[in-house]
């Protein structure tokens, strides 16, 4: 097993104002060339996790505990400027909404070229040639002409391809994609996922893919981390998540997917609601909604228990329920 490129250990992020935790005890590791999917509902802390790794947390949030290592270097002890210097070069990020994530008054070509010039020291001419080649690689038609376009002149899919180009420009080793296809329509989603998978293979990127879409997980991830209310519920190889989910939350999540075939029943949903920040239950965070909950579930948050190779779930009843 190669050494992990990214290693997150016991991460905790809290609101700066009240100290209420958004994510707690999140650990993960990601190898070069591997794709790790992070799934969870809205508010499960998956975007916060991505922003924390990038060092881009908004001021209202603060990392209160835990370590983040990239290529063996500890990031959390770096000065803000040193962390900034790692961004773009060692790690890059693709955001959910490609319209608002691009500068509306700057030509898209320049938004790519500024990375090449400022982060890789290229001359303007080299940067232009490289940007054209990258546009070609991400399958933007008429790349030379599109470089001069403004974001509002491009479709959503094209804009997301521009975002991907920006992320790849400085040749990072870690790519974080936060819901990269959520804002796009379905046919474009598949194209963008294919593109991401190809680029990841081609460049041996470590890809951290954040999504709430289990279809995306099935499509391109190697392993999956299931987040619930800011804590890891389950981590497993992608295949096992579908074939042998161990955590009751994961099962409920899978059961709530609408079936494409068979009779059209009512959509299954999980009873209750995600607990809100600052009002988390003392025990397992899923216990109030869990039909398997027993006494110990209510007192202390369960630790991750291994149930197979590279497969673990934070549930006290893992053994019995399997």
């Amino acid at each position: 097993m190669p050494a992990p490129l990214l290693r997150v250990d016991g991460l905790e992020v809290a609101l700066a104002s009240t100290g209420a935790t958004i994510i707690e005890e999140v650990s993960l590791s990601l190898e070069p060339g591997e794709t790790l999917g992070v799934v969870g509902e809205s508010g499960s802390g998956k975007s916060v996790l991505a922003l924390t790794v990038m060092g881009l947390l908004p001021r209202a949030l603060a990392r209160t505990r835990g370590n983040i290592q990239l290529g063996g270097d500890e990031l959390t002890t770096l000065s803000p400027d040193a962390w900034r210097d790692r961004r773009g070069r060692d790690m890059a990020m693709i955001f959910q909404e490609p319209m608002t994530a691009l500068n509306p008054v700057m030509r898209v070509g320049h938004q790519v070229e500024e990375v090449l010039m400022n982060r890789r020291g290229m001359s303007a001419g080299d940067a232009r040639r490289r940007a054209t080649a990258l546009f070609e690689r991400v399958e933007i038609p008429e790349p030379a002409r599109r470089l001069a376009a403004f974001p509002h002149e491009l479709s959503g899919g094209m804009r997301q391809r521009v975002m991907i180009t920006i992320a790849l420009a400085a040749e990072p080793r870690l790519l974080i994609a936060d819901e990269p296809t959520t804002a796009l329509d379905v046919t474009i989603q598949a194209q963008i996922l294919d593109l991401l998978r190809d680029l990841q293979k081609e460049r041996g990127l470590a890809l951290l893919l954040i999504t709430h879409d289990l279809g995306v997980i099935a499509e391109i991830t190697d392993r999956v981390l299931v987040l619930y209310a800011g804590r890891v519920a389950e981590v497993a190889p992608a295949r096992l998540i579908f074939d042998a989910p161990a955590h009751p939350y994961t099962r409920a999540l899978l059961a709530s997917r609408p079936a494409l075939t068979g009779p059209r029943d009512r959509l299954v949903s999980i009873e209750g609601a995600v607990p809100s920040v600052g009002a988390m239950p003392p025990g397992c965070r899923f216990a109030p909604r869990c039909s398997f909950a027993i006494g110990p579930c209510m007192t202390a948050p369960p630790a991750l228990i291994a149930c197979a190779e590279r497969h673990a779930a934070a549930c006290v009843r893992v053994g019995e329920l399997g």
């Binding site: 990038m54 881009l56 900034r84 210097d85 790692r86 961004r87 773009g88 070069r89 890059a92 990020m93 955001f95 909404e97 608002t100 994530a101 691009l102 500068n103 509306p104 700057m106 500024e114 990375v115 400022n118 982060r119 975002m163 920006i166 992320a167 400085a170």
Partner: peptide
């Protein structure tokens, strides 16, 4: 706005982000 976060994710300096974005 979001595109400032994008500029930040590129690792550009604060001055560059302020003046160009």
């Amino acid at each position: 706005q979001d595109f400032i976060r994008t500029a930040d994710s590129k690792g550009l300096t604060r001055l560059h982000i302020l003046l160009r974005h």
